[in-house]
Amino acid sequence: MTESLAITKFSDLANPTRFLALAARILPWLSALTTLLFAVGLYLAFSTEGDYQQGDTVRIMYVHVPAAWLSMMCYSVMALSAIGTLVWRHPLADVSHKAAAPLGAAFTLIALVTGSLWGKPMWGTWWVWDARLTSVFVLFLMYLGIIALNRAMDDPSRAARVSAVLILVGFVNIPIIKFSVDWWNTLHQPASVIRLGGPTIDGEFLRPLLVMAVAFTLLFFTLHIMAIRNEIWRRRVSTQRRMAARLAGREG
């Protein structure tokens, strides 16, 4: 059986060696595509005209919205991996949600900071305690809590299983974030891109926004694959060190 045929089967990804081979093959393409999309997206973001109402600040949207979208998608990826950990005892799933947590925290931080910088000229304040902002802030705290829990435990597989439970319980926050703008009538504007009846946003702003969203998503997947690879290597190093120590102890 040739390598490329085997890789097409998703279940074979369970084998870390196969995953490493696949990662080595697609990572250059993925990172090149990400860079290209970022270049196009940034060019579009600064060449389009400003909104007549919001002026130049509408350009903040092109980083704020993709980062906020990723902060939720990253948690969903982690929740899926957590199911993989608990139900199928999938060895890569453990690694996957551990590697995704810092990425999610970073994207949530970007969304919060850019949102705050957008809010100052538009709403006249850096921060309001409305439903959307508060729930995203809670999401940020949950990412940090999961990272802290992962760091507090020595045994990696037990840490993975226990934090998987926490991730799944914390998943109740995601629908709250998604629908907070619809359920509560607050300052933050409701969704304008993905909704029934088509986007309410002008095509002029939609184009750079979509390019940037795809670029951010690809960036997430590139970094996620790299982080998973690092984690696999880290575990191999520690296993081999332990083996070496045992051998040395036996023969020494």
């Binding site: 809590g145 507090a152 435990m153």
Partner: peptide, 19 residues
């Protein structure tokens, strides 16, 4: 979640408060 940690008290609060 924190039952096996020797000093889990603070971590429990951090994990639980957001929820």
């Amino acid at each position: 979640v924190a039952v096996t940690l020797p000093r889990g008290g603070l971590l429990v609060s951090i994990l639980v408060l957001p929820l």
